[in-house]
Write a protein that binds this DNA or RNA. Structure first.
Lengths: 142, 142
DNA sequence: CTTAATTAGGACAATTATATCCGATTTTAA
DNA sequence: TTAAAATCGGATATAATTGTCCTAATTAAG
């Protein structure tokens, strides 16, 4: 079961944090990431591939190839990752599923949820991979 | 795609709001709720059935039967409904899916998320079906 | 007593999300 | 030139969620 963000998106965030912590290395392979973070390898392959179509990460085929951040970790936020993988549905949809919920036609928690939702967006917008890389010291990431 | 709460849970919330607005009537049928709220009828049947095993709603078989709130709408909160349908996973799980995320071993957004999550819980805890019934004036509920 | 309207409950189907497999291509190093 | 290690990309498999169908049991009204 996933919560707000899809499983794919969670894997993407975790993997990019891993990459951010390996900035000294040119390329990091799917195999390495998957085994350290306990993510299904082939599934991760597809996720990273789709991220490599954006300007967030880049890939290199062949021996000693792999993936690498495409720009400075300080310029990649968790929000950027979520936006690519999950799109904007999580910040558009009514939290209790009322059809056509809007300011003009609000559900019972519309106003309150709008504030909370904005705080969630703010939370992931202001966390860059640089911030995060220094904070994460979990096993698997070292 | 659902967001935090499952589709089932969204349907349950909507249906119980509907019931709260029909307090004058003894029983309300699945057919009526489903057609007014545009919820798949048989799916709703199962959802309401499972809620009727708790003390939130009760059911009556046979002609002119249906469902009805089992207690005063002021004593049923959105939280109560969520708890029955979705359990507590939504307020236990790490928002970016870090395994073993905890106070001792926090993910990068752990502390911030904890606050937001508590606010979400508070939001649904303090909304009773009585509050909600008077607020909702959407088409389908009248 | 019969009929119609309803919930109950099991089986099944469809859809979506997650995960796996395999062969092709690319790249580097021996 | 060959072999190994990697991504790429399509096909397929599995699991979870959502939705449908059918029959039985129940109840009230005529």
């Amino acid at each position: 079961m996933s919560l707000i963000f899809s499983r794919q998106c969670e894997y993407a965030i975790q993997s990019l944090i891993y990459l951010a912590k390996k900035q000294d290395r040119e390329w990091v392979s799917i195999t390495e990431i998957a085994s350290n973070l306990k993510i299904p390898k082939h599934f991760l392959g597809k996720i990273l591939q789709s991220l490599s179509f954006t300007n967030i990460i880049k890939s290199q085929k062949g021996l000693h190839g792999g993936f690498s951040l495409a720009k400075n970790p300080k310029d990649i936020s968790l929000f950027d990752i979520v936006e690519v993988v999950d799109g904007d549905a999580y910040r558009k949809k009514c939290v209790i599923g009322f059809p056509d919920c809007s300011n003009n036609n609000p559900c019972p928690v519309h106003t309150k949820w709008k504030d909370l939702r904005d705080s969630i967006v703010e939370m992931i917008k202001k966390k860059s991979l640089l911030d995060v890389a220094s904070e994460v010291t979990k096993p698997g990431y070292e």
